[in-house]
Design a protein around this nucleic acid. Structure first.
Lengths: 248, 248
DNA sequence: GCCCAATGGATCGTTACCAGACCATTAGAC
DNA sequence: GTCTAATGGTCTGGTAACGATCCATTGGGC
């Protein structure tokens, strides 16, 4: 190796991916904040109808000033994704899911990276969780997340949120902050890709079946089987995405 | 990435880790820049004696303004880690390795997270690389990185740089930017922990032997063995660290 | 010997973002 | 009915970081 740099080398320096903008970080803090909120909604942290945390609290969570957060919220409000009510017991509420950014170009490397990294993370998470002893609460949460997925065969959007919640649930059960964060981040990238391809019922049902099997393997404390099933599951998505998006 | 998030919701929102500071990101851009430079040096991207990229270029790489970069460089210069020379064919040169920040407190969760995530990443990387066909150049680079480790039994600092280079080499051979970035980031966290414990010759020799075995498995295209060896290797470090640092 | 290109060094005006204080509105409690 | 606590909405001053420009130094090429 060496410090040839650029072309190949997304090496060690370079910090987070930060497109281009005025200040540091992701372009600017404002856009980053919007992205963060959208992601949380898309990944099912806040479902439609849910109330977001109070502005002061949410700002602290995203580590951004309230002023900037409000800018972002106003943007989302304009887009019809949230609404705000004043007064005690008021707040900001999710009204609908954000529509997919179908216009963005597809970076060929992006697909490859996102989908392969997802395979790594989810396989590992499934194995790790299967090796643990889960508390009754955790078991309940996991099975609930699994069955929730089966309730919605209607829209791609709704399914995707619940699907994401299921997979993130597994990641969270590892209690590894790094893995949780990486999984959420990667999941969102994969979801963005899934939005580009048709919604296929058969696939959804198959996915749900696989979810069930993964949960079974985890609850049966069978790490190898859990990992293997998770890998198969991820590979299914991978093939689907590559089939639709690669080479064009 | 790292650090989780607030107590309750280690969920999906929460953005990059941003301790506490004025502006956004890692406290402030200035500190982040220093950290980034130190990391690149510690992980062997720039070895002692090497010339850093020109300020204008380096600033662009780190995605930071030249003014901020210079602040950081001046700090490093004051600390004796780099020196600058003006004029054409001048530049900024690495003079010595940064000394470890032994004063920082050890977050008990940090050890656990860093060490477990490292296991996940390096196991996956080894498996993936073993599944690939490597080009002659890649094979050469890998074996070179491995043998380089054996050349230095002198100081902990030097060994750690070469050790990091070896592991990052494997990560880079996956050609997965996300995995490369995560590996570098995690590696640095682990290194910071290793700086707190004594440097044990026997362990280093054992590590080198394991490196050799891992390379053998990769070149033999034996993914399972490569993954298994990588896991054993990482677990060795894990036990060492836990033994010295946990519970006190 | 002169010039030039590449580098580090310095300065300046602008802006994005922040912290904190304050105002406005609301629903429930009393 | 009034009070109160929790919330969204508004405003102000401070500053970190930026982009841009210019200066200073140096070694090699002509």
């Amino acid at each position: 190796m060496d410090r040839a740099e650029e072309p190949g080398g997304p090496g060690t320096a370079g910090s987070q991916p930060r497109p281009g903008g005025k200040h540091a970080r992701g372009g600017n803090v404002f856009e980053h904040t919007i992205a963060e909120l959208l992601r949380a909604i898309r990944l099912g942290k806040y479902l439609v109808g849910d109330k977001l945390p109070a502005e002061r609290e949410l700002a602290a969570q995203i580590r951004v000033s309230r002023a900037t957060l409000r800018q972002a919220l106003i943007e989302l409000q304009t887009a019809g994704i949230v609404t705000s009510r004043r007064g005690r017991y008021g707040g900001t509420f999710v009204t609908r899911l954000p529509s997919a950014d179908t216009d963005e170009r597809i970076d060929p490397g992006e697909l490859d990276d996102a989908v392969r990294f997802r395979l790594v993370l989810e396989t590992a998470a499934a194995r790790i969780v299967a090796e643990q002893d889960l508390s009754p609460n955790e078991v309940a949460a996991l099975t609930a997340a699994e069955t929730d997925c089966r309730t919605v065969f209607a829209s791609a959007e709704q399914f995707r949120v619940l699907d994401a919640r299921f997979h993130l649930m597994i990641a969270e059960l590892t209690h590894m902050p790094s893995l949780i964060y990486a999984s959420a981040s990667t999941r969102d990238r994969v979801n963005a890709l899934l939005d580009r391809i048709p919604f296929i019922h058969t696939n959804v049902e198959h996915s749900c079946d696989q979810h069930r099997e993964i949960v079974d393997a985890i609850l049966a404390s069978d790490p190898d089987r859990a990992a293997d099933l998770a890998a198969q599951h991820a590979e299914g998505t991978e093939k689907l995405l590559r089939g639709f998006l690669e080479q064009r």
